[in-house]
Simulated scan of single mutants.
Amino acid sequence: MLAVNYTNLRDNMKTYMDKVTDDYETIIVTRKDNKNVVMLSEESYNNLMENIRVMGNKANYDWLMESKSQLENGNLSLHGLDEADADE
């Protein structure tokens, strides 16, 4: 995570945007009166929102935690994938 003041960000906008999108960097833009802003890529934002949606539903959360526990305890099975016919 990087912190940069507004003036520096404005003067080097492309460089910082490239860091955010190419290097998955999160940037805190510092401003007066501690009214800071966080800049992150659209991909990171969408991922964050999806995680909030999935983890915010208790049934989904419980199912994921149970699956995680089963995997960590070696309680799993492998299955082959069937190929679908072209007309399906």
Rank of each mutant, 00 (worst) to 15 (best):
D22G: 11
Y24D: 14
V37W: 02
N5H: 12
G74Y: 01
S44I: 07
T26V: 03
Y61S: 08
N8L: 10
R53P: 10
N5M: 04
G80C: 06
K32G: 12
V20A: 02
T30F: 03
D18C: 01
E88D: 09
G80W: 00
K14P: 06
E25A: 13
K32A: 13
E42N: 07
Q70N: 10
R53H: 15
Y45D: 07
N51A: 06
N12Y: 05
E42P: 08
Y61M: 09
R31M: 03
D82L: 14
M49F: 05
L64T: 02
E25F: 07
I28R: 12
S44D: 12
N47E: 01
K19T: 13
M17K: 13
K58W: 13
A86D: 07
S44L: 12
D87K: 11
M1Y: 08
E43N: 08
L76E: 02
D85P: 11
K58C: 14
G56Y: 03
A3Q: 01
M55L: 15
A3H: 02
M55N: 13
N12I: 07
H79K: 13
L64S: 10
N34T: 01
D82M: 13
D62L: 03
R10C: 07
D87R: 09
S67I: 04
T21P: 01
K58E: 15
W63Y: 06
E43I: 09
I27W: 00
I28G: 07
R53I: 15
M17I: 14
N47I: 00
G74T: 05
E42R: 06
K35C: 06
M49I: 05
N47Q: 00
I27A: 00
L78S: 10
D18E: 02
L9C: 00
L78P: 03
T21G: 04
E66Q: 10
L64I: 05
N73E: 05
R10Q: 10
Q70E: 09
Y61D: 02
V38W: 00
L40Y: 00
K19V: 13
